[in-house]
């Protein structure tokens, strides 16, 4: 019996290792290719197992990226834009969701339905009208035009709303008895209980906007406000492609994503397990 359990265990681990390897393949190829200084070599290896082997190790591609692109400026811009969306978005969206979850007012149900309906509207369909609006405001070619339109987010409101309606009212009623204001209850009672959903929203917002390309392409012109995704497009033009630099750039913009995920991983998994969210 024990031997059978051990076999099952081993099989399970083997399967998991294979799956992990499968999902890690692109990341490994990216990292290994970024260390190969010869683009022709990268292309030759790409169709064989050598794509996973660092046959040559050099940081030349990374140096070339810094020489050819204002990488640090683009990184700073991306961090500022996405950081603003996440931090301000957490506050704004949770506050809206709290209001919808706790206040009783005429049209509340309709408002919730509208928020849910907004989730299904693809950004591409509103991009052009939004461009015309921000142009009238004189916001083009700024950092804030890349953040402000995304702070209020229907999906984040929905996630917070779903979470808040499950938070027991007893806790809040006790705070009311103690004389706490609504905002105080939201800030000091509800938010501390909401770490899993905060982590989930943080990761989802971060992932969505870290890789955002369409909107920055439409509104960011100068290198001063250009985020990483647009800066990377410098490598996608004339043939032949400089795959080594592309991989080095990709490696460097993937690292912040991994850091954010690892920071919030525990709560993210917890939230998915409890709410069934599929980002």
């Amino acid at each position: 019996m024990a031997r059978r359990a051990a076999w099952t265990h081993a099989l399970y681990y083997l399967l998991m290792t294979l799956l992990a390897g499968f999902f890690l393949f692109p990341v490994v190829i990216m990292l290994v290719s970024s260390l190969k200084p010869d683009d022709a070599l990268i292309m030759r290896h790409m169709s064989s197992g050598l794509a996973f082997v660092p046959t040559e190790v050099s940081l030349q591609n990374y140096r070339d990226v810094f020489d050819n692109v204002a990488f640090l400026k683009a990184l700073r811009n991306s961090v500022l834009i996405v950081g603003s969306i996440v931090v301000i978005g957490l506050f704004v969206n949770s506050l809206i969701a709290y209001g919808l979850a706790r206040f009783r007012f005429r049209g509340r149900g309709l408002l919730v339905s509208v928020v849910i309906a907004l989730i299904i509207i693809p950004f591409e369909s509103i991009a052009v009208p939004l461009l015309l609006i921000v142009n009238r405001f004189g916001w083009l070619d700024t950092l804030y035009v890349q953040a402000i339109p995304f702070i209020a987010d229907a999906f984040s409101i929905f996630l917070f709303y779903q979470f808040f309606i499950q938070v027991p009212r007893d806790l809040e009623e006790a705070a009311v008895v103690d004389g706490a204001s609504r905002f105080r209850i939201y800030w000091s009672v509800v938010l501390p209980l909401s770490r899993p959903i905060i982590a989930t929203v943080t990761i989802l917002l971060f992932l969505r906007h870290w890789g955002q390309l369409l909107w920055p392409v439409m509104v960011a012109r100068s290198v001063e406000v250009r985020p990483l995704t647009v800066a990377m497009q410098q490598f996608f033009g004339q043939q032949p492609r400089e795959w080594g630099q592309i991989m080095a750039f990709a490696a460097m913009i993937t690292i912040p994503v991994l850091i954010v995920y690892l920071l919030f991983n525990r709560w993210f998994v917890q939230s998915i397990a409890s709410s069934g969210v599929k980002g």
Binding site: V223, Q233, F236, G237
Partner: peptide, 8 residues
Amino acid sequence: EQLPEGTY
């Protein structure tokens, strides 16, 4: 102003 070629 130089704009990236991929999205020019």
